[in-house]
Amino acid sequence: MSAPRPVLDAAATLASGLLFGFGLAWSTMIRPESVLAFLTFDDLGLLFVLGCAVAINLVIYQLVPRWRRQTLLGTEFQQRPFELNGTAVVGGILFGIGWGLCGVCPGPALAGLGAGNGDLLVALAGIFAGALLHGLWEGRRAA
């Protein structure tokens, strides 16, 4: 998909990721122990992380496409392609087991690496490997 304004598009995308990563660090989510403390109910603070992030985007996702036909850069508002089925639920269960085991999820692993936690390279290598296995498995399933 070629963006009509590639430089601005790249700048906006980079700034969005930067803000997201900075927020992940501020929320303490980049520290896996903090996520594990949430999952064991020792500190429910992460409810406010999800709550605030969802509340802001609920307003944005629901209202902005009604006000404007196009985005600020003149592109279309995209829908997340997702269809719920049994396979997806199995994926969610596997994801949850991994999340509960190490307290890492993809965004915080990246932001945490940036903040200097080199251990997360191991988790990121695992995520890359998992995504590779998934793609190869989907390929065999389709064949």
């Binding site: 949850g96 999340w99 190490c102 890492v104 999820c105 993809p106 695992g126 490997a129 998992g130 995504a131």
Partner: peptide, 20 residues
């Protein structure tokens, strides 16, 4: 981190997305 990462990568892709 290694085992968890593997499950997270496979599971998130099979499940069509993660926490974000």
């Amino acid at each position: 981190l290694a085992v968890g990462g593997l499950l997270i990568g496979f599971g998130a892709r099979l499940g069509g997305g993660c926490t974000s």
